[in-house]
Amino acid sequence: MNQLFRPAANTIARLSLLASLLAGVVILALLLVNDQSPYTRASVGIAIEQPVRFSHKLHSDQLNIECLYCHATAEQSSYGGIPDTHTCMSCHSQIATYSTLLEPVRTSYATGERLVWEKVHDLAEHVYFNHSIHVQAGFACETCHGRVDQMVVAWQAQNMTMDWCLECHWEPEEYIRPVEEVYTFGYEAPEDQVELGMQLVAFHEIDVDRLDSCSICHR
């Protein structure tokens, strides 16, 4: 009977052992890169096209409309809130009534069909986030959502990974603002941010030791 393996097989076997070890390392590295990459994690910095060409820059920056006018539930609910068609039409029944950009909104208003927006901030399903508690304690829209007032088409500003959340949950005094500055864009932190932050954290009775307990976010 023929020999099944030639002498070269020894070398090949050793090489393939080494190669498989290397492949394991490469695969692990790729998975890590994949996990952290803005492309796979979330579309950070990628403007997402919407069915209606709504400009935050126009409405928020130029017209100075309060965030809460449209995102009405941010102070009361876990859900920040996307405006219903009637909210759009409360102004646009009077302003820019014939604008072609508003055609989908008018159609929705006339037919009762809901508008379908693309979700820009898609938090993982296993994370519980409550807008009202953050907003009411003095954490600004800008801190997580970036300069929305400068965005013509909205995009996600932060990667929303767990370590990003924890940056603030470990040191809320670095990011907290007086409540009246929550809706301010382009806010410049005062020189004594940490000192002031400590006071605000104490004022809002934020228990920093409990902020990184698992069940705060993963319930």
Binding site: Y79, D84, T85
Partner: peptide, 19 residues
């Protein structure tokens, strides 16, 4: 996967979405 947000055409008066 890309997800959609589908708001109400008119939010019922007493409802606060998310609560």
């Amino acid at each position: 996967p890309e997800e959609k947000i589908i708001p109400y055409v008119q939010v019922p008066e007493v409802m606060v979405p998310g609560r």
